[in-house]
Amino acid sequence: MTLAVRCRNVVKSFDSEAGPLRVLHGVDIDVPWGEMTMLVGPSGCGKTTLLSIVSGILSFDSGAVEVDGHDVARMSDSARVAFRRANLGFIFQQYNLLPALTAAENAAVPLVAAGIDLETAAKKAMPLLERLGMGEHARKLPRQLSGGQQQRVAIARALVHEPKLVVCDEPTAALDATGGRNAMELLRAASVRADRATIVVTHDHRIFDFADRIVRMEDGRIAAVEDKAPEIVP
């Protein structure tokens, strides 16, 4: 069985005034289907860089990265964009909702990017918004929503196009403890399926309970992998 994500010996450096700064030192990581994998570790350990590489929005120096069996590095730029559009869902720390669009329209953006008109796409996003408890707020603009509500819209946006891989960057960083747990409960319930994998980058140890697997990173390397009992939601 293929893995959702398979990284082998991934090396990544950034230019700095002092010369090339290596942030990933040959990272190996497997992300199986049907699990929520959390990448944890101190600031600067390379979590977000690895997430960006897995997402196909950042190139790497050497190694191999496969997502759903596809070699991301071998894709052309346009093919990589199309691959992301079809197969990846994103949840950002600051939500990054478009301020001029309603909650339903924001949730529908991946469908619009795929060529569906905004009105139709917003209607398609409604069942998911309702499932996330946002049905009554669907017509509101982001500024009219609380942080937790905005994060739910972001979750809906990440899942509306049925992606195979959901990547989340510090999804609870802007939420209080209760809001963070609520968001993770919704994210886990909505995103974890047998044919989908979810990667969460987080500092927030309060949400580690939601992970099926915790990958600890230190100084650009995988320090430990902690497998927990998988909890697959069909």
């Binding site: 997402s55 929005i57 346009s78 964009v81 199309a82 691959f83 992301r84 559009r85 079809a86 990846l88 994103f90 950002f92 990054n96 478009l98 301020p99 953006v109 991946p110 990017a113 795929a114 946006r157």
Partner: peptide
Amino acid sequence: QFGALKAIGVG
């Protein structure tokens, strides 16, 4: 916002 759109898959 444009960056988010690009990440999501808008070319």
